[in-house]
Design a protein around this nucleic acid. Structure first.
Lengths: 343, 343
DNA sequence: TTGTACGCGTTATCAT
DNA sequence: ATGATAACGCGTACAA
């Protein structure tokens, strides 16, 4: 738009195109393109000459043009659950940073999208506009509209968390196995009456952890009392009420489904002047720094969250690049036995 | 690529282009384009006809093509500091969600980029590729290489936090003013010896808060003892050591520069069995849920973080749309006087 | 090995 | 008010 031509010497500021480079080097645009992409045969010397020039003049191919020509955006989207309570965000954010790290390393960019468990709209826009090559679902539900939609739309995606469809790319920890092991450990330490405090059973991770808890009991041919079990706990109030009632029931230990719940449980116990582990034992199926804030260390399962984000993107990129990654990637966990369950 | 044509009736799945729509409706592509964009004159009835058709067949314009034609990506990037400690992330993540909310509402997408205070590389890639229309800097430094780079590159951007250049778009709280007010309040409540525990003085926010602290004293024509002042505290160890020494000096109150530091301070005090506010008074220049975990409520400054993210994007979009937003947007704060500073 | 020509899907500038 | 046509910048068969 009425921009005066640079006078003679190659100025900075001007935005270069592949043609500018070509003209300057006395070659054709396609040669430049080949030099950059590495595709198609090209003389090594011209290749170097081009590469050197674009480096020196910091030429970058226009993403939109490239995207249009290749039908590839080099963008990934990560879908985050709507933030209700700030404290339950660490998992997703850590995961996001892991994802971003690997994306970045592969010259991909990461778009963040937050949406609740039902609103497809933001996804539809992205898919419709073809703004991304693939997506990462950071949470899975028992009836997952996102999974259904993406399968249907033919968009490559990976889930963080389990998914019933075995063909869907998924990376997860063995939540059930881990909780089973933790439960068994607690029982073996003499805790007979273990209470379970869990959240929304519409989420796969919660379903799995609860299943693991039951399996732990079954392995000992025992059964937890129904009154010790709370699921679908959503608010702080519900949690503290559950704690109160469980105290009356005289359980030996409170097994919390995640760090958020554990956090509330410990606080309520604190309020009631119940000491840990003297008055009550506590364990959590997921550890986060949140729990660092207590003088007593908490027995818990530990997962490498950043790594799950990394792996998710790795698998997704493999998929996009035509490799055929194993659909299911299982990550390690660790049981961290601490003071809070000392007998 | 060898896709069989849909037999007769307009199937779903096929990816439509603006031409398909045009052909189907017996109009030209440009008419369809105009109907969608609203630009250029077009008959109201044809307009409706087009709009209805694209709705019914869920047509979305190809983002890459549109981007190429308009030289506009409808993407924004948010630059997040490299994550060192997970606990100091809440600010940036909350900010991000606020930004994403407004971006989403304006049909923009948000790319996340994390980088430390010196590494320009990720920015250069984005700018070079023209992947975004603008950027949000979530943290500003006294000598800010990002600000310099973006100004130089002519990329629209907004900073969250203050910046020396008055022409740079910035949205911020009045950190200095708020800390001054808080300091004065503490003094007026009889706390003569206020210790200050702060972090890296390379960051603008820390510079401002510290300045506010000093101004608070000056307003009373007093001066804090040098030994009460700790800046550039980086590790937990440094913080707890500072707390120990300050206890020996017999200060009346510990004013913490942010929630992270306050968190450590309170923990250390806990370890040492020093009660709050009985044994020591504590206040924080920034509140986050982190501090919810203590039985005693903490006197602090409160900022609406989500809102700062929202405002940042709003201002940036205004800029992109040729409006001329005021360079400086100041957001409100609130002083929350709680138990931790009771005398 | 390298150059030519066309397509990717949209917007914008001209005509009509 | 609408239609044809030329960009936008890059990738890629095809030709040389």
């Amino acid at each position: 738009m009425g921009m005066t031509e640079s006078t003679g010497t190659g100025d900075s500021k001007e935005i270069l195109t592949i043609h500018d480079v070509a003209r300057e080097l006395g070659v054709s645009a396609s040669t430049v393109s080949r030099a950059i992409s590495g595709k198609g045969r090209i003389g090594e010397e011209t290749r170097q000459r081009v590469l050197q020039y674009i480096n020196a003049n910091s030429f970058h191919p226009n993403a939109a043009a490239r995207s249009l020509a290749q039908s590839r955006t080099y963008n990934l989207a990560i879908i985050m659950p709507e933030v209700r309570d700030l404290v339950d965000m660490p998992f997703f954010h850590t995961c996001m940073h892991g994802a971003e790290e690997v994306a970045q390393a592969n010259d991909y960019d990461l778009l963040v999208v937050t949406t609740d468990g039902t609103n497809l709209h933001p996804l539809e826009r992205m898919v419709g506009n073809r703004k991304v090559d693939g997506m990462i679902l950071t949470r899975t539900y028992e009836n997952d509209v996102f999974v259904e939609y993406l399968k249907d739309a033919g968009v490559p995606f990976v889930t963080v968390g389990r998914c019933y469809d075995p063909k869907v790319l998924q990376v997860d920890h063995d939540n059930a196995g881990a909780c089973k092991e933790l439960t068994m450990l607690l029982i073996s330490r003499g805790m007979e009456k273990i209470a379970y405090l869990g959240g929304g059973m519409d989420q796969m991770v919660n379903i799995d952890r609860y299943a693991g808890f039951r399996q732990g009991y079954e392995a000992y041919r025992k059964q937890p009392d129904k009154r010790w079990i709370y699921t679908d706990l959503a608010t702080k109030n519900q949690i503290s009420r559950a704690v109160d009632e469980l105290l009356h029931l005289g359980v030996d230990c409170m097994l919390c489904q995640d760090d958020f719940i554990c956090n509330e449980v410990v606080q309520e116990l604190n309020n009631l002047k119940v000491s840990i582990p003297g008055g009550m034992r506590v364990a959590s199926c997921h550890y986060s720094r949140l729990l660092d804030n207590y003088p007593v260390t908490i027995t818990s399962l530990k997962f490498d969250i950043m790594d799950i984000g990394r792996k998710a993107v790795q698998v997704l990129l493999d998929q996009l690049n035509g490799k055929h990654p194993r659909p299911l990637t299982m990550l390690d966990y660790e049981i961290s036995l601490k003071e809070s369950t000392k007998n």
